[in-house]
Computed example of a mutant assay.
Amino acid sequence: MFGSRLPQKPAGAVSAVVTGAGSGIGRAFALEIARRGGAVLCSDIDETSAQATADEITASGGRAWATACDVSKLSAVQKLATQAESLLPEPVDLVINNAGIGVGGTPVGETPITDWKWTLGINLWGVIHGCHVFAPLLKKQGYGGIINVASTASYSAAPLMGPYNVSKAGALALSETLAAELAGTGVHVTALCPTLVKTNINANGRIVGKSSKLFDRLMDRFGMAPENVVRMTLDAHQRGDLYVMPQFDARMIWRTKRLFPRTYALGTGMINRFAAARLQ
């Protein structure tokens, strides 16, 4: 069961809603919450994958339900909140806005506008919708938490990842804003900013050209297991942390950019061109 440093519901285990729970980080969140004694509503745009996660939890003796949800649509997230109220045994006190996709490989000006809209619709508007719908509910009940899955891309601004960088930067800014607005209410906000996590984001996204090949190579060599990321994040959330940067490189990028912003931008561009040349 979860710790008690932050205000929690008066009694009982956590009741959580997880978006993008059909795979990757979202699935790992759902499984770990259930392992800690929580009840989980697993949502995903692919209801079959959400159901598979829920079935794995119930097969292990946990409590889970599944539903389809397209987080890019406000009406779908509002429906998700209604389903959570009817399905979960107690009021929601943890919302994890995780659903996301990856886009990259082309520079600004060449990236199709359709890719921009697709990425922002899920990665940014999905988080906006989740916070818009659930934050007032949590504030009214006086306890709970929101975890928004951002990325190191939210501040690293790597080349050829414009839509993804912008979407994650927005998710981080929203998390920081919401944390300030909810200070003292009993509702805590955490932003997860990992680097490489071993998920199917490349296979399910639109990362094209050399960037896709480089992404796969780096993932194989340096990717962290989602289970480890999730455990660190839930523990940090319980401590009241706003930022979670689970990997050393995420923390180093954060510090380097703030200390040497111009040098960081120039260096990032050079590293990207060097990596691309190696893939020739």
Results as ranks from 00 to 15, higher is better:
N200E: 12
S212N: 03
G184Y: 14
L214T: 08
P246R: 03
A203V: 13
G126A: 07
V127W: 02
M232T: 09
R206H: 15
L266M: 10
L138Q: 02
A183Y: 15
F222Y: 14
G184E: 10
K140S: 10
R258T: 03
Q238T: 05
L218M: 08
R251S: 10
A153G: 07
A180M: 15
F215D: 04
N148Y: 04
L192T: 02
V208D: 01
Y264T: 06
A158L: 15
R255W: 15
G162R: 06
T185D: 12
D220H: 08
H237N: 05
W254K: 04
M245V: 02
E176K: 02
R217Y: 12
F134E: 05
S212M: 04
R239N: 04
P194Q: 01
A183Q: 12
L174N: 01
D241C: 06
E227T: 11
A250V: 13
N228D: 13
L259E: 02
D235F: 13
E176G: 03
P194L: 13
N200Y: 09
N228Y: 14
K168M: 01
V208Q: 05
I201V: 14
L138D: 05
P261M: 08
L182D: 01
D249K: 12
M245R: 14
R239K: 14
A173P: 03
W254Y: 15
F134K: 08
G126M: 11
L138N: 05
